[in-house]
Design a protein around this nucleic acid. Structure first.
Lengths: 163, 163
DNA sequence: CGTTGTGCTGGTCACTTTGTATACCGAACG
DNA sequence: CGTTCGGTATACAAAGTGACCAGCACAACG
């Protein structure tokens, strides 16, 4: 159901402008957006409904900054997993609040996860908790120093809207 | 300016419940949120204002799914940079739409970036564009197969609200 | 002890936005 | 030619918003 039919259709120019507008000024409503884009309100409503049911727009949840929450340290950990332990490791990591995301990957490691911690010292505690699990063979961690390009989507949306 | 005074103060229990509520049901307004939380509307308004000026909540932008945009392939690339070329490489990568985020890190590589592409074949084009820049010595890429834990913040918010 | 500041409550007010429905228009298509 | 689809325009009731205000509880402070 979740991964039902995802149409993979892409977006047109108006969709792109709408998404970029909403990304830049999230507080504006449907009415104001329609004014900015120079189209009727019904059009914006219809586009938004379609974009959300398409899955292009997942939602409008709050974007929380872990640093402001007291977790200013970010790190990426590459994990090597013992054969057949994947499911257990997933479940274990899902239970650790400091694990913000987890991917299984090709390449040297088997998994890559993003961690946050209250300090460099606290990061040791988090890593111990993450790797202190039977099934994880080895872990190598890279601490984030700078974040020159924060997670963004606008340039990609603009490119996708070129079609 | 941007990195002005970030109070690093954390959040209390009501803040936590409010953020979690908004994350689960972003469409509800201030009034409905106040009803759910059992507090006055003005309280929710004041909390929201404070959370946003604190930087805890960065905004309510649309969460766009790159896959639904036609970019179903995600990868992480570890880059090794030639000494002193950092700034140029940052600028170069910032200009590539398929680069969704970029971090400078400690460890074996110097930078870690998240990429998306239209297909595995297209990923080759993206990687060529990323590493085809004087200043990048070497790159190793890990293609994401599964994403057992999508980027999340709720568990961390709940933990931070325990204080 | 009294004062002050702060945060929450519960209420009102005018104004705006939303949800929903309607009818109309032109382009694309079988 | 008729149908369908997307956009426009309009209407209306319902709901939410921002802006107030007075009252109350509580902690800090002189």
């Amino acid at each position: 159901m979740v991964t039902s039919e995802r149409r993979l259709m892409g977006i047109d120019h108006l969709d792109g402008r709408l998404i970029v507008l909403l990304a830049r000024e999230p507080r504006i409503g449907v009415l104001e957006a329609s004014r900015r884009l120079g189209v009727a309100r019904g059009t914006v409503q219809a586009r938004l409904d379609r974009l959300q049911s398409n899955g292009v727009i997942r939602g409008f949840g709050p974007q929380v900054d872990p640093a402001a929450l007291g977790y200013p340290v970010t790190a990426f950990a590459t994990l090597e997993i013992k054969q057949g332990q994947g499911a257990d490791v997933r479940a274990h990591l899902a239970g650790v609040p400091e694990v913000l995301e987890l991917h299984t990957t090709t390449g040297h490691g088997d998994m890559l996860c993003r961690l946050v911690a209250r300090s460099n010292a606290d990061l040791q505690r988090v890593i111990d908790r993450v790797v202190g699990f039977e099934g994880i063979v080895r872990a190598s961690t890279a601490i984030v120093m700078e974040n020159p390009v924060p997670l963004r989507i606008i340039p990609l949306v603009e490119q996708a809207a070129q079609d």
